[in-house]
Design a protein around this nucleic acid. Structure first.
Lengths: 348, 348
DNA sequence: GTTAATAATTGGAACGTTCCAACTTTGTCA
DNA sequence: TGACAAAGTTGGAACGTTCCAATTATTAAC
């Protein structure tokens, strides 16, 4: 009611016990008598007591707080939103609470939010680093012994855990599938060339193309921003070639959607006259028309797994860096044309 | 380096001053001599000092922490992701940090995360309440004097601030536009009937329809889950009518996308043979094919404005509830057919 | 050269909790 | 009855910071 918040001492007075006893009740200690416990609990409810984690956390300097931080580089991309949801579910059920911040690919912002999280005493951090993040940026965290799990993008040289998806295997499988459908001019579309993820996905594409009859050709790689608009743009450049491609492996689903938009604008029907494969399997992929054939990476699953890795490190005491690769799989839907052309069609 | 974290006292010792002086430096007080300040700052950097907000917050019981909480009911909906980004930008630049949690429409979860945020001493809360939230659920917050701003969904009887978009005006404008294009059988598609937002949007639709020649007809209201899949489903029911509609005002953009999917599956081209209008103007609305005519509500803008309302309350000391309505506007693109049929076309 | 004002610094108390060691009460056993 | 153990309970110290009143060093004014 009044100004001052109600503290453990107020409860103690009202219940006729000592503050220590109240503290024991708070921690569900078996030491306290059942009748005392119920009385204290009743008083707490009555007075509207709220636990002050700040104070508790201050006292137990050994154990850290029950906060875990998650830093993503683009929350408006639904991939990251779903990742955050995945993290939230496991973190929440472990009694932690999540601090989420968005860096919008800004290194400065990223430094700020990480500093802020440290000030609040996070127990651990899940980071999808902004473009251009270097190992030295994470140095203070590992020096302080704060567990960190990098997701989506790894950073060479940083001695922290990481969980990335198997980008190479994903695009490799996509090319193999398209080649099996009879395509030979398969383009690699979208993405910024200066990123590790791009390199890996391009690598899978290159290796698979090299195995085919026509082999890898540099000109079939058309980069762009990793967005829907970027996909529209890249497709325009691809179709302007003397001998345009008949299929595209896209950097991600957003690009793939853009490619479909661009095709339709040219009166080319994706999944019929041209094959499109995405990467990520975002929620919209299965409901859009035509349903997108894509590489499934299960963002929520990655979030959950990353959170589990982090919790393991937190509980282990000393952070033991661990690198994991999340496997991917090809989900065949309509945009690659498989469902329509082939008699023995595979459906997802 | 070692076990114990470095504190203000370590800094004081190393710099040859008192802890009080270090504290003053931390607060950028003008009282401290310039040379002392620089020396202290240097020592802080050298020893890798990190500020302990928990301790600071404990002392200044009057002022609350620099945390604001944001609770959304569905983070995978990009509308809310963008809203969160909007909040983040203004909150961050005011020196606060944001605690984000997702309730997935679960009241229990919502109660948990709000309790957790209180324990961490949030200064204020921005809440997009889960379905079924009642005024009594917010009671403890207003009793504790914690500023709250409700967004998207208002709760009758809760004495807290709110910021909702002008749902009535939005659907009203949509119907008017479609009527002007010559449609008379206009359906209202999607959304759960037991929500305030649904009522408001339906109300705008009903009032506008009453003004037209044919008037409002109950059968043209087809509800469904407010998702893409829901849209597909609702459209199927609408087209099964003896006299199917020729246009649809959709509960939100997700439903509108589903409606477009459903139309295509029936070989009906949205924007040509059938007019579709959405609600929200999510990012994908302008890039999809056909580009979606929709009611723009600018989720990031709402997030920013909500954050400003909240900060105002926090700074004001005593929370003064304030209700605001965010205006909306019709963005005419292709899915309503206006761009193709009319000579004097309006483009957004 | 004294006083007053100003600038800079400081030690101690306080915030709300947990931990520890000590204490009281009750029961058990010889 | 006394010794001992077990079960509950408790006061004080500590965590890292900020605030306050008090102190010292410096400068200004007469």
């Amino acid at each position: 009611m009044g100004k001052g918040r109600v503290t453990v001492i107020d409860i103690a007075k009202a219940a006729g016990v000592s503050k220590s006893t109240v503290s024991l009740v708070l921690q569900a200690s078996p030491l306290v008598n059942e009748s005392t416990r119920t009385k204290v609990n009743a008083v707490m409810r009555e007075l509207g007591y709220v636990y002050n984690r700040g104070a508790a956390n201050l006292r137990q300097a050994n154990a850290r707080s029950k906060i875990i931080g998650i830093v993503v580089n683009d929350l408006t991309n639904s991939f990251f939103a779903e990742l955050a949801v995945g993290v939230d579910t496991v973190v929440q059920s472990a009694g932690f609470v999540q601090f989420l911040s968005n860096t919008s690919e800004s290194i400065d912002r990223q430094r700020e939010v990480i500093a802020s999280m440290r000030e609040h005493g996070v127990s651990g951090l899940i980071i999808s680093p902004a473009r251009g993040t270097e190992a030295v940026d994470l140095k203070p965290l590992v020096m302080a012994g704060i567990p960190v799990v990098l997701v989506v993008r790894n950073i060479p040289g940083a001695k922290v855990s990481s969980l990335v998806s198997d980008n190479h295997a994903g695009t490799f499988a996509a090319v193999e599938h398209l080649a099996a459908l009879g395509h030979s001019r398969i383009a690699f579309v979208g993405g910024f060339p200066d990123t590790a993820v791009f390199d890996e996905r391009l690598g899978g594409y290159r290796d698979a193309m090299s195995k085919t009859g026509t082999g890898f050709q540099e000109e079939l790689v058309v980069s762009s921003a990793p967005s829907r608009a970027g996909g529209v743009d890249a497709l325009a450049r691809a179709m302007a070639m003397p001998e345009p491609p008949t299929a595209a492996v896209c950097f991600n689903d957003a690009v793939a959607f853009g490619v479909c938009d661009g095709l339709r604008a040219r009166r080319i029907e994706p999944g019929k006259d041209f094959a499109v494969v995405g990467f990520d399997d975002v929620i919209e992929a299965k409901t859009t028309v035509p349903a997108l054939t894509t590489i499934s990476v299960d963002p929520q699953g990655i979030g959950q797994r990353a959170a589990q890795m982090l919790l393991k490190q937190i509980n282990a005491g000393k952070p033991e860096a661990e690198s994991a690769v999340s496997s991917v799989r090809l989900i065949v839907r309509e945009s690659c044309g498989a469902a329509m052309n082939k008699p023995g069609r595979r459906m997802a």
